[in-house]
Write a protein that binds this DNA or RNA. Structure first.
Lengths: 193, 193
DNA sequence: TGACTTATTGACCGATTGGTATAAACTAAT
DNA sequence: ATTAGTTTATACCAATCGGTCAATAAGTCA
């Protein structure tokens, strides 16, 4: 009956995500979001309800499309050591390519966790837990194929790899250069050898 | 001639640090700072000049008194493996004890680095570089005493330990529990074995 | 065409932002 | 007592904050 929106909600969320990702929730103003999306206040509140609701949407979409889908693709390689290698390579590549140095949206929000509501906290925990589980599955699989020594504890090592991943993401936002990031990767691989 | 300030600048900076540390620069309002220090605007601007200048002071003082002094104490132990063990123990202890879950002021600011000015960036880089150097010295020392195998590359391993430290600090802000944090520590120790 | 529904626009809201200015009260050294 | 500097307490500033709302425009239906 009525009239469809003449801007794409999905694209709008993606553009908002870029801003939240780069600047964080607090430092992102409504004006920033309106400019990034290219709409005005009325349409914004009609479409998203509030700044916080849009943030929630952004984070969920990121978790779904960036983190989950990428890990699923690596998992399909059926070579655990290669999958972990490729994951770290991808992170380093992404960090070096992104001129805004946004890092990882989930990690950025994780550091800010005490200042967010319970829903956001759940999303972040779920996302990072997902990455930890990915590592754990790869390690177990590697132990079965013999690519990874039996002496390694999958649960503990997975947490170590996650911590390295998080550390890499933080340090990639301006402290470490390529060589240093590669050193982190090497240490990650050492942990499963 | 005149009259000395009747509030202690040092204490004031410490109180301000607590707020910046917990909430970050953007999310901290002037009202927050005034309440935490217990002075009013006039005194604030007379003493510190601006919010940003106070932030700079806070970060420098933290780097000097929290990070540097603690590492210096550990370094005096003359037992590299023990020093690294104790460092991670101290970080875990601190993270679990702090009910505000503030994490590490330097790490928090490091993640926010692209949104800060050059002076702040320098302070953060210098601080993290200092921790990396601490690790490197301990590893080299351990290799000399035989406590750490010669096969380990001090420079690379130090970067790995720093990444683990940073990851631990981030995850301790709400994602990981004590058991998981201990797992990270175990992986750190594994890296030097 | 006219009714109905929805989206867009832009003005408007009170509250808060960081920061300035002012004046009076106070303290201490000259 | 004068003087210099500090404290408190306000009042004030323009700008921005997130958010609301009524009018208007645009599309779909009968």
């Amino acid at each position: 009956m009525p009239w469809e929106k003449n801007f794409n909600i999905d694209d709008a969320v993606d553009r908002a995500t870029e801003v939240f990702w780069a600047k964080g929730y607090e430092a992102t103003s409504l004006a920033d979001l309106l400019q990034a999306i290219g709409i005005n206040k009325g349409s914004f509140y009609n479409a998203f309800g509030s700044k916080k609701k849009l943030f929630t949407q952004s984070l969920l979409k990121y978790e779904r499309e960036q983190r989950r889908d990428i890990l699923a693709e690596l998992e399909s390689l059926e070579d655990p050591v290669l999958a972990i290698n490729k994951l770290f390579d991808a992170l380093i590549e992404q960090s070096l390519t992104d001129k805004d140095k946004k890092g990882c949206f989930l990690v950025n929000t994780a550091l800010d966790l005490p200042n967010h509501d319970i829903d956001t906290q759940k999303t972040v925990k779920k996302g990072l837990k997902g990455s930890e589980s990915f590592f754990e599955r790869q390690i177990k699989s590697g132990i079965q194929t013999g690519a990874i020594p039996k002496t390694i504890d999958p649960g503990i090592c997975a947490k170590g790899l996650l911590a390295l991943l998080v550390g890499l993401r933080v340090l990639a936002r301006g402290v470490f250069d390529k060589t240093s990031l590669m050193a982190i990767k090497k240490q990650a691989i050492d942990l499963i050898h």
